[in-house]
Computed example of a mutant assay.
Amino acid sequence: MAKVDYSTLKKGGFMRQKQKNNFSLRIQVVGGHLTAENLKAIAEAAEKYGDGHVHLTSRQSVEIPFIKLDDVEAVQADLAEGGCRPGICGPRVRTITACQGDQVCPSGNVDTYDIAVKLNEKYFGRELPHKFKFGVTGCQNNCLKAEENDVGIKGALHVEWIPEKCIFCGVCEKVCREKAITIKDKIVAVDYDKCNDCGRCAKSCPTDAWDTKPGYIISFGGLFGNHISKGFSPLPLVTSEEQLFRVTDAAIGFFDEHGKSGERFKFTIDRIGEEEFIKKMEEAYYG
């Protein structure tokens, strides 16, 4: 009997179960997005090759458990016909997660799915010292919990008051959770040291008296496993996709260059030093 290459199976999304010769197959789900065709193929595969149920993971993937070793190639072929690709495990860039963003959610400031797809195309499956996770969330409500990821991307909206459009209704001041807006003597003032670029003021304004520019808040070194660490955000607001991908390239490159096998990104940053890491990120930020 040929020896089973468990490492290759794991790289292809097949994770060993406690039951001998049974595997849970992880499906690649980018940004939480599945089509009806995908869902039909997954359901049929679960019925045909599994035990009729699927598991929804904490990172928006779908897993089909109880796949038999002899059915590995057949289930891959059937899923491919339904537009599904296997996910990935091990020391690699994992599937990118995202909330619904501004295409669906009224609070969203950026198109999170579009960013997730582009990140996935650039980095998915890239070999690194350890697993590496991106998460994209659309606004400060932070439904995707960006700071839990190795690199978190949070949609932002930079605002500037337009005096000639303002009727001084006071709505912006009331909705600002950071108390960054004050209205006095027919002047609307924004304390940008307090402002978190959530955009609630602009979205609530009845006369569109705010000029808005979308952007991204980037966090690094988040971790939520055996050790828990909130990612930190040392950079100013990222204002373009080009700038965003310069920064993500630099972060991946830093980990690839300095990381040790089995070491998560946060601990690489700690070992090399935050000062050195921030210097590299600032170089990428400013181009």
Rank of each mutant, 00 (worst) to 15 (best):
S58D: 04
S58W: 04
Q60A: 09
S61K: 03
S61F: 02
S61A: 13
S61E: 15
E63G: 06
I64G: 09
I64C: 08
I64E: 05
P65C: 10
P65F: 12
P65R: 08
F66K: 13
F66Q: 10
K68Q: 15
K68F: 03
D70L: 14
D70R: 15
D70F: 09
D71R: 09
D71Q: 14
D71G: 09
V72G: 10
V72H: 07
V72Q: 10
E73A: 15
A74W: 05
A74T: 07
A74Q: 13
A74M: 09
A74N: 11
V75A: 01
V75W: 01
Q76V: 07
A77F: 02
A77P: 00
L79C: 00
A80I: 00
E81M: 02
E81N: 01
E81V: 04
G82T: 04
G82I: 03
G83W: 02
G83A: 03
G83R: 02
R85D: 04
R85A: 11
P86K: 05
P86Y: 04
P86T: 07
G87F: 05
G87W: 07
G87P: 03
I88L: 06
I88T: 15
C89Y: 13
C89N: 14
C89S: 14
C89A: 12
G90T: 12
G90D: 10
P91I: 05
P91D: 08
R92M: 04
R92N: 08
R92T: 11
R92I: 03
V93T: 08
V93A: 04
V93K: 02
